[in-house]
Write a protein that binds this DNA or RNA. Structure first.
Lengths: 146, 146
DNA sequence: TGTTTTTATTTACCTTGGTAAATAAATGAA
DNA sequence: TTCATTTATTTACCAAGGTAAATAAAAACA
């Protein structure tokens, strides 16, 4: 019995370690795939996400909100928006009511770029999972993080 | 019908995008958690993995194999072993039969460190998933990568 | 045997992203 | 009002990790 529960634990442990490695490896795999597809458009997947957030917002939103929607650390949000500003894909305006805040919005050039981007690799891979499986995956991942 | 399938697709798409973000976020979350726990031991989770691989091997193994077992890019394996060598946790020996190859092994100091490391945070979180759920998670992740 | 190709590892260089401190403005309390 | 605290963002600095080229030795082959 002691021996048996040890055995069960060992299996659980190895399945857990495997899941952790698998998780990191898959996440990395997806990021690489995304970035490879975005390379011709000269933006990273993180920058692409910001553009999508701003298109979705339909109006200027504070950095604070961009950061929150990206689940990113602030310094990184600043750096990413810096790059998008340089490329004139987004615009930054200091808020007049609260001069600490900065509002960000997507430019027509940014919208045009977004409309040109179509992921080809991903939809192919996506077909390997059904919607139900995706829902399941999401619930398992949520569980890991509480 | 056209409208309905569009609806289904939209849901699938959003579930997919959610899964991708979830995956990256969870992977990052785990790495951060791991590194925080390893901080008192002055090693990163990547370095910890190398030590475990070397302990498991029970004898000196070529860099090539370490790299393969870590699913890491070569330059990174070199850098990580550099750091472990500096701390005298592992040893590197140039192979005499094939002088291109370098063999790596764990030192007594490395083994001692490994034996001291006990993850506390992880087992708690682990309890949120059953072994069956972990198996399921692994199979879903495998599917994404083919 | 001499030359080309392949293999194993490392170095150089660069980008990304993390932490902590700096800045600057708003809020709250004495 | 004035000073301490909180909030929003940025800057400075550092570590991790990726690509491509360098090195060096083995294998293949003409």
């Amino acid at each position: 019995m002691g021996e048996f529960s040890k055995e069960v634990n060992a299996t659980f442990d190895s399945e857990f370690v495997k899941a952790m490695l698998n998780l990191k490896y898959t996440a990395n795999y997806i990021t690489t795939l995304n970035n490879k597809e975005l390379e011709p458009h000269q933006i990273s997947i993180a920058q692409y996400n910001i553009l999508r957030i701003l298109r979705g917002a339909k109006k200027p939103i504070p950095m604070k909100l961009v950061k929150k929607r990206m689940i990113e650390k602030s310094p990184n949000t600043t750096r990413l928006t810096d790059k998008l500003c340089d490329k004139e894909l987004i615009e930054r305006v200091r808020c007049e009511e609260d001069r600490r805040a900065v509002y960000v919005s997507i430019t027509p050039k940014g919208l045009k770029l977004l409309s040109k981007i179509v992921f080809k690799e991903m939809p192919t891979r996506m077909q390997y999972l059904t919607k139900d499986e995706l829902v399941l995956l999401n619930s398992l991942l949520d569980k890991i993080r509480d």
